[in-house]
Design a protein around this nucleic acid. Structure first.
Length: 206
DNA sequence: GTTCTAGAAC
DNA sequence: GTTCTAGAAC
């Protein structure tokens, strides 16, 4: 059967790397990974003159896309008032990809308060969170707590304040909070228990 | 962001 | 003994 985990784990049988120089994987600049992913045709979902949409390399739900401007905007703190139209465009393109994918499912469009990866990216993620890549508390809390800012709220902030200023220290504790179902608010003590539980809910967009 | 894995939790 | 979490990795 060889059922795989489906979450991009490495094959240990891989050995055709032609040399003894493969002891360690260079981890430096891992946070620049989105730049490479943007140019990967395997991941690209949509491209135009202003944006690139890719499938998240490690999707945390059945459907998980990243909408990114081609313009190099490192993060939310870099946003200026003149970027508002661009944010609206990202949102619009995100909604389009939802309609092309599965409009019967509930989705959210939003930004992480403190993203690990550099280069502004709008998450477009279905709310089932049914994925083998969703593995730990940080994953869960980053999409189901106030760590996840709805795109509309970010746009509103930029519009009203002329910037998006988030205190990153405030969000470290949020990621360590107890595991709680995003639908019925029931608490769970382990990830496996939570992952089993969330399957009982419907994620239809009705 | 992920992988790996020690040792805590059960 | 096995499951699960959480911190280091260059």
């Amino acid at each position: 059967m060889a059922a795989s985990s489906g979450c991009g784990q490495k094959r240990k049988t891989e050995s055709a790397n032609g040399g003894a120089s493969s002891k360690k994987k260079p981890n430096f600049a891992w946070n620049k990974g989105l730049l490479a992913s943007m140019d990967d045709p395997e991941l690209q979902e949509y491209v135009d003159e202003k944006v690139v949409i890719i499938k998240d390399k490690y999707p945390k739900a059945k459907h998980h896309f990243l909408v990114m401007p081609k313009e190099n905007i490192p993060n939310l703190n870099s946003l200026k008032p003149e970027h508002l139209e661009l944010l609206e465009y990202l949102h619009e393109k995100g909604e389009e990809v939802i309609h092309r994918t599965d409009e019967t499912l509930k989705f959210r469009l939003g930004y992480h308060a403190v993203p690990s990866m550099s280069h502004l990216h709008l998450h477009v993620i279905s709310q089932d969170f049914d994925s083998p890549c969703l593995k730990n508390k940080k994953h869960w809390n980053s999409f189901t707590t106030e760590y996840f800012f709805d795109s509309e709220d970010i746009m509103k902030m930029l519009k009203e304040k002329g910037k998006v200023q988030l205190d990153s220290s405030k969000f470290q504790d949020v990621l360590k909070r107890n595991l709680r179902c995003h639908v019925c608010r029931k608490d769970f003590s382990t990830m496996p228990a939570l992952k089993t539980h969330i399957k009982v809910h419907s994620y239809k967009n009705t």
